[in-house]
Nucleic acid binder design. Structure first.
Lengths: 184, 184
DNA sequence: TGAGACATGTAATCAGTTACATGATTAT
DNA sequence: ATAATCATGTAACTGATTACATGTCTCA
């Protein structure tokens, strides 16, 4: 139902739109939080019109169809926005990789974590640049701030994990160097 | 492919296991990072055996089948663990809700954010309790620390957003009280 | 003998991806 | 004329959920 909510919200905010318009909208700043391709959007718009949440307001050149939100659509959107999600399913590949990290040799794990810290830093810079471009209090501002905070947490976690692994690597190397703890 | 990796990893760590064993394993601490039900696990195990990543090591009572990891399975697991994921698709309902928050009246948004701060705090407490139970350096330790940091970021973001909304609500109320800014 | 845990499966459905397919309009 | 952009769709497939379906073993 998230795709429906996103489509309803986009039309609510920007007014009547075609599938083509909406597809492009999903490639803008919204892409940081949700993605959808035209092959998913077009059938969904048809279903939503069939369900009375949207209506075809206008048919333009090249078969262009402009969808407007109906009262039922607005009700559905408000309903979705205000429902409280208890117990969501967790299926996060990044978390799974963190969970399974101990299966790798220390050096390899450190390499991967370094890359991850770098990626989080890059994403963070990207969001900061976006904020400069669109301003402090633009429409997606709350999500932007949230992304920044989570990227900071991700980077700091990766650095913490690297530090931890490095300490245990040192201890291990130490042990290897003087296996019995006794000089000759 | 994440499910495959998780199954291979569980068998790698705990030794030969049945679908039933693995299903229960997904209900333990792993449930914080990935979920899978028996109806997904059983067919996947069969496919993995057909692909040579696992082999049926033993058939027990009640039709129990114990799967062991093969050399090909270990190679596949290592491959998955070390591949660097560039550009992952984003589809995060919590982020979408944050993005669309400005569509709600301020008071309603504050309510939802309060609930979200509370939920993050609860999850954080849950993870802290888990850490006390399983110890600082247990197998899922890296993921646990990561979860804690992200839940902290989530709670802090929600509190920040509430504060921001409260300030603009106050400003709005102020305006309503003395609409022209002039006393009579 | 009956409850509860053990144990494995399939079918229908939903959300999403990738690839295929078609054609109209506009600007150079 | 032709390339770019506008514009909409469908089909095959993958991963996941929910519901249905079946049967065994153990212990009180």
């Amino acid at each position: 139902m998230s795709l429906r909510a996103a489509l309803l919200a986009l039309i609510e905010v920007a007014g009547p739109s075609s599938g083509y318009d909406l597809t492009k909208r999903f490639e803008g700043s919204l892409a940081h939080v949700w993605q959808a391709s035209h092959s998913q959007i077009y059938p969904e718009l048809n279903r939503m019109a069939a369900d009375g949440l949207l209506k075809v307001e206008e048919e333009g050149p090249r078969g262009r169809k402009t969808y407007a939100i109906t009262a039922a659509g607005q009700a559905e959107l408000y309903q979705w926005l205000t429902e409280v999600k208890t117990e969501q399913r967790v299926r996060d590949e990044a978390s799974l990789r963190a969970f399974l990290l101990p299966l790798l040799p220390g050096q390899k794990a450190i390499e991967l974590l370094t890359e991850r810290a770098r990626a989080a830093e890059t994403k963070k810079a990207e969001l900061e640049a976006l904020r400069l471009r669109v301003g402090e209090s633009s429409f997606g501002g709350f999500a932007l701030e949230r992304g920044l905070r989570h990227m900071t947490a991700e980077r700091d976690w990766a650095l913490w994990a690297i530090d931890r692994l490095q300490k245990s690597e040192e201890a291990r190397t130490e042990t290897v160097r003087t296996p019995t703890g006794e000089p000759e």
